[in-house]
Amino acid sequence: MAPKMIPPASAPAFLAAHGWEGAEILPLAGDASFRRYFRVRRADGATAVLMDAPPDKEDIGPFLAVAGHLLDRGFAPPRPLAIDRAQGLLLLEDFGDDRVGPVLAREPHRERAIYEAAVDILAQIAAQPAPEGLPPYDEAAMAREVLLFTDWYLPAMGAEVDDAAYLDAWAESWGDVARLAEANPVMVLRDYHADNLMVIPGREELGLLDFQDALAGHAAYDLVSLLQDARRDVDPALEEAMIARYVEAANVADPLRFRAHYEILGAQRNTKILGIFTRLWKRDGKAHYLALQPRVWAYLERNLAHPALGPVRGWFDSNVPHKLRAAAWAEGAPQ
């Protein structure tokens, strides 16, 4: 089950040691991990965000390392204000409450401008090589992720398949992606979508969240994460316009090759997400993610239509019938 939103007992002393004695601690959010977030408010009105990452379950080291890389390159992650690694406590700059997803639900006229800004950030990230020390987003990593589909999704549907044939189909499709990522790796934030981007009061740049799992990989991954968002519908016309914007801004040398890689990584990511959402349901009791499965399937079906994914499409056609795809979720969780 999801952790209860009660501040850790060590929080008041941690805050007091760093100039926040007596600050009010208010529940803010949890996420798909064991991390929890609280807003702390001092008597003078100043606010910050407290991250609670239990050390036996989460390591704040990668968050701090990637935040440092982003800050050094001129981007806007929340700045760390105080750190206690032993207790897994981190006090962060407070960006407010305006995640891009809810902002666009209230103010849909801002969608194009915000997506343009988000795409431009990715083009700027891709203009620099990945920082040293980031693990590679290579074939082994991609394979581990797509196995979430066969390890969690298909068993939940009552289906069993041959993992070897499954991985062979993927390897046949993503070989060129992996070669390019190995030759020219960029920093891939891996969960770059509307609910992890912030409109910061009084600032033009978008704030970045949930980047601690960054890897060194292919530039198209974060673009497809943004434009095929599991949590909100992105109009296909906007998706096409933003792909074109990225291709121009990043000076992509071979747009057709890039588009093939975009669809391959989209298929890989969406397949992984179907497995992750099922695992969150079955293992962690977080059933609310299941409502997102039909949207993810719609993205995946579009990805699989690209010729570069012929082997993977063939495997899906042979092993995952229509009744086990989006149709399985039409009336809620399968029984």
Results as ranks from 00 to 15, higher is better:
46 A>C: 04
154 L>R: 01
81 L>I: 02
60 I>K: 02
50 L>A: 06
143 A>N: 09
81 L>E: 13
140 A>D: 12
155 P>E: 11
81 L>N: 06
140 A>F: 06
82 A>V: 08
133 G>L: 07
42 R>Y: 04
147 L>W: 01
138 D>T: 13
144 R>V: 02
94 D>N: 07
40 V>P: 04
52 D>N: 08
102 P>L: 04
110 R>P: 11
127 A>C: 09
39 R>N: 08
79 R>A: 15
110 R>N: 06
108 P>I: 14
134 L>D: 03
116 E>G: 13
134 L>Q: 07
122 L>V: 10
97 D>H: 08
139 E>W: 10
60 I>L: 14
110 R>C: 02
45 G>M: 07
111 E>A: 15
108 P>M: 13
108 P>S: 05
112 R>Y: 10
124 Q>K: 14
62 P>N: 09
122 L>N: 09
97 D>F: 09
40 V>G: 05
158 G>P: 10
131 P>E: 11
114 I>Q: 11
150 T>M: 04
152 W>V: 05
67 A>W: 00
158 G>T: 06
81 L>S: 02
72 D>K: 13
42 R>D: 04
83 I>C: 05
100 V>N: 03
124 Q>Y: 02
128 Q>E: 14
44 D>S: 12
146 V>F: 10
90 L>Q: 09
87 Q>P: 01
113 A>M: 07
93 E>N: 03
91 L>I: 07
64 L>I: 10
149 F>H: 04
141 A>W: 03
51 M>R: 03
44 D>Y: 04
147 L>D: 10
141 A>G: 00
69 H>L: 00
70 L>I: 01
47 T>D: 07
113 A>W: 12
113 A>H: 09
80 P>G: 12
133 G>T: 10
57 K>V: 00
56 D>E: 15
137 Y>H: 13
88 G>L: 13
84 D>V: 00
105 A>R: 13
100 V>G: 07
64 L>A: 04
53 A>V: 02
95 F>P: 00
81 L>F: 02
97 D>E: 15
128 Q>T: 14
58 E>R: 01
97 D>V: 03
38 F>T: 06
103 V>S: 02
134 L>A: 10
94 D>Y: 12
105 A>Y: 01
108 P>E: 11
115 Y>W: 10
150 T>C: 05
120 D>W: 00
157 M>Y: 04
116 E>R: 15
43 A>D: 14
151 D>R: 12
135 P>N: 01
53 A>Y: 07
94 D>S: 08
134 L>M: 05
87 Q>R: 15
99 R>D: 05
148 L>C: 02
91 L>V: 08
68 G>M: 03
